[in-house]
Computed example of a mutant assay.
Amino acid sequence: MKACIYPGSFDPITKGHMDIIDRACNLFPRVYVGVLNNTAKKNLFSVEERIEMIRRATSGMEEVEVVAFDGLLVELMKKLECKIIIRGLRTGTDLELEQQLSVINGKLFPGAETVALLSKPETYFISSSAVRELIEFRADISDYVPKEVADMINGGIAK
């Protein structure tokens, strides 16, 4: 079975992320959403909260499995026996970074491939950092995150 992994911090998961997950589900029978626990980064939401947001937002998607990880992505890929990384690209800057990471990941885990999906025009401007800023100022985030996520955040999990 060919599986793929879509890694990220997902702090929080956005409609742009959901579009990439949905499209990956059309391409692969198993889509792992890898939630990075990067202790060097200050996240607004805990790993557990981010995992719960993603699980709620993907509850109708049988192909999706949410997993947490820290350290190198390729170590998780080896454990999951998964060689395909899904990445969403919004800008040329994203492309340059993903090209670099693809080479490094391929050296660390021979056979690893990166599949890039271009963001759709209606979501390319959405970023988790912009959503976090809106949350900090208590602005409406409903246009940028799945309803389940907005409900969780508005229900009081925001810091």
Rank of each mutant, 00 (worst) to 15 (best):
residue 3 A to Q: 07
residue 11 D to W: 09
residue 15 K to D: 03
residue 17 H to N: 03
residue 19 D to Q: 04
residue 20 I to A: 01
residue 22 D to H: 06
residue 24 A to G: 05
residue 24 A to W: 00
residue 25 C to Q: 04
residue 26 N to V: 03
residue 26 N to E: 13
residue 26 N to G: 13
residue 28 F to Y: 15
residue 30 R to A: 03
residue 30 R to Y: 07
residue 30 R to T: 13
residue 31 V to Q: 04
residue 32 Y to G: 02
residue 32 Y to K: 02
residue 37 N to T: 02
residue 39 T to K: 12
residue 39 T to R: 08
residue 39 T to Y: 05
residue 45 F to I: 14
residue 47 V to L: 13
residue 51 I to A: 02
residue 52 E to C: 00
residue 55 R to V: 00
residue 59 S to W: 06
residue 62 E to C: 02
residue 66 V to Y: 08
residue 67 V to S: 04
residue 68 A to K: 11
residue 71 G to H: 03
residue 71 G to K: 07
residue 72 L to E: 03
residue 74 V to D: 03
residue 76 L to A: 06
residue 76 L to R: 06
residue 77 M to T: 14
residue 79 K to T: 14
residue 81 E to V: 02
residue 88 G to R: 01
residue 91 T to G: 09
residue 92 G to M: 15
residue 93 T to P: 00
residue 94 D to A: 11
residue 95 L to M: 15
residue 95 L to T: 13
residue 100 Q to I: 15
residue 102 S to T: 13
residue 103 V to G: 00
residue 104 I to S: 02
residue 104 I to R: 02
residue 110 P to H: 05
residue 110 P to F: 12
residue 111 G to P: 01
residue 111 G to F: 11
residue 112 A to V: 15
residue 113 E to I: 07
residue 114 T to Q: 01
residue 114 T to N: 03
residue 115 V to T: 01
residue 119 S to R: 01
residue 120 K to W: 01
residue 121 P to F: 04
residue 126 I to L: 08
residue 128 S to H: 12
residue 128 S to E: 14
residue 129 S to T: 15
residue 130 A to F: 11
residue 132 R to Q: 10
residue 134 L to H: 09
residue 135 I to K: 15
residue 136 E to D: 05
residue 136 E to G: 04
residue 143 D to K: 09
residue 144 Y to I: 09
residue 147 K to E: 14
residue 149 V to C: 12
residue 152 M to E: 12
residue 153 I to N: 05
residue 154 N to S: 12
residue 155 G to M: 09
